[in-house]
Design a protein around this nucleic acid. Structure first.
Lengths: 121, 121
DNA sequence: CGAGACGGTATAGATTGGATACCGGTATCT
DNA sequence: AGATACCGGTATCCAATCTATACCGTCTCG
């Protein structure tokens, strides 16, 4: 049995892992970094709608979990680069599956929502 | 290019879709319902740690998006069943990929966290 | 009569996330 | 020389969200 973890267990660490993945911005950061390392402002520009704070916290959390690597080239003007670790890279596959599902099924979901809005109640 | 949607666009509907998927409990509900329809309390017992309110809201949202189907058999005692729609079912594949990634890489992440805690600061 | 199952709701408290503004240090524009 | 902008963030405040706890009506069982 290689499956030592059961997601439903509530005491299980995979809960926290799943929570991190679903953390609203993680997906986008992984996605953005897929093409190669990026700097902070670059990342911020790429992921439209994210604030500095959100980005900072997401990056910190991901670094803490070993998903990305932060490299500070110091000096001045500040130069910091973020890159995916092998672990972060391995997340790309599963995440891409979800993203593609989302992109594919947007019409279905929108029509479901529309149906509820017009027909419902 | 069949990719009419770009996740990074911020104005893009796939954002909301992705947000729904990452909504903390959605994954678990889909997972639980994979085996077949379930009743409210059954679901609540299966997903350890979820509260009635969280479950209710998750189910409502998922129903609104056409991911699940709520069937009220009325009468008494109350009898309500939740089942995956075909759309919800199609989500199972991508989600399972993520879940398996999570289960597989828990040790990696935990060791990364441990390394940060002992070595860091 | 009293208790429990069922499918939730109501209320309040804790936690998280977002928006906006600002920071220090340098380089550049005027 | 002064004003401004770039870079990688913080600080602060406020709003939305999540959680915990208790409770509801109806019915059946004992």
């Amino acid at each position: 049995m290689s499956k030592a973890y059961n997601v439903m267990a509530a005491t299980c660490p995979s809960r926290t892992v799943l929570h991190r993945i679903g953390a609203r911005w993680t997906v986008f950061v992984v996605n953005a970094l897929a093409a190669g390392p990026m700097r902070f402002t670059e990342l911020k520009a790429h992921i439209r709608g994210i604030t500095s704070k959100a980005l900072t916290e997401t990056l910190r959390a991901m670094e803490y979990d070993g998903l990305i690597l932060r490299t500070d080239y110091g000096g001045n003007p500040p130069h910091v680069e973020y890159a995916l670790t092998p672990l972060g890279h391995s997340l790309l596959g599963p995440l891409r599956a979800v993203r593609e599902w989302a992109e594919t099924h947007v019409p279905d979901i929108e029509s479901a929502r529309a149906a509820r809005s017009t027909t419902g109640s």
